[in-house]
Design a protein around this nucleic acid. Structure first.
Lengths: 166, 166
DNA sequence: TATAATCGTTAGGTCCCCTAAGCAATGACC
DNA sequence: GGTCATTGCTTAGGGGACCTAACGATTATA
């Protein structure tokens, strides 16, 4: 990819993707499913099979404290539960509950309805392009999180960040 | 688009797009450009030409208070300025400053560098798919914000929202 | 056994988003 | 021309998601 293409793609991603997120989030909020968008991927991942907190954090690309608090929120909502430890008593296994699966379905259906409406003006070619583009994003970013998770020791090792200077 | 396709696209969007945002945001944070991702589209829009607050809010799909406070933050950062009123003394025109343009360039360059690295594994076909897909998103969501802006009276008219019930 | 590494939580802070409630200016109508 | 609604924006208050720093608790290692 040329430098020019990378720049263009970067601008597109930075301009469009937040807009898409806001739109979808607004729709979910309006439907009473607030706070769901950020937890959707999580819930969807847990619906596959239970996972350990650390694993979830690196798959989702967030810090461990963030994941811990997200899970706490979802526990309060009744969507997931922390299960009793097995051999290693440090680890906490997270699994989705029945209400959690129901919430996942509701959110998916709500988003689906909304998106179907938004995407209505697209013709067949355009829709195919969109889905292929999303597929590529999926490939690149999912893989990336996993490898990043494997290659870095922990979020603790991340370098000092330069604070914002006005 | 069939119901099945809509559902699949919806899931993809809800799963992938937040991940992409987090990754890009983390990179910008690490580079010291924090708080930029949400303001990037705004800055980019203002770089085209100055605009009115209400217009910005509807183009970006956020409420007026949110836009007002975002602009205040950016004014503090020195990236934009609120200019003196013209005929109608209620309106406030927002325009980007020279440091604002510089910040926009820095962020774009930073994101570009990062994305070029992330997208490196994609072959030519995949990259073209990605860009086309982003193009479709752009078309659909940009247009949507504009028409939504024109058709609704104001955010005040939005319906009562059902609060979350645990 | 002492020390290091791993897993998770709590504390404190920032950013971005919202609704509700106001103020100021303009337009419309009797 | 004086009320009254409308429009443009701000302030107040609150919530969610993200971060780093610092701390338990448990397991592995030297």
């Amino acid at each position: 990819m040329t430098r020019e293409q990378a720049r263009e793609t970067a601008r597109d991603i930075l301009e469009i993707i937040p807009l898409v997120m806001r739109t979808v989030a607004a729709e979910l909020r309006a439907a009473g499913e607030l706070s769901a968008p950020a937890h959707f991927g999580l819930l969807s991942m847990l619906a596959e099979r239970p996972r350990i907190l650390t694993e979830l954090a690196s798959l989702q690309g967030v810090s461990l404290p963030t994941m811990s608090s997200s899970i706490s929120t979802m526990v309060e909502r009744g969507w997931v539960r922390r299960t009793a430890p097995g051999e290693d008593r440090r680890v906490v296994m997270i699994e989705v509950t029945t209400p959690g699966r129901a919430a996942l379905d509701r959110v998916a259906r709500c988003a689906e309805t909304h998106l179907a409406e938004v995407l209505a003006p697209l013709d067949v070619t355009a829709r195919r392009r969109l889905q292929r583009g999303l597929g590529e994003l999926h490939k690149v970013f999912s893989v990336r999180q996993q490898t990043a998770a494997g290659s870095r020791k922990s979020y603790r090792t991340s370098g000092k960040r330069r604070p914002y200077l006005p």
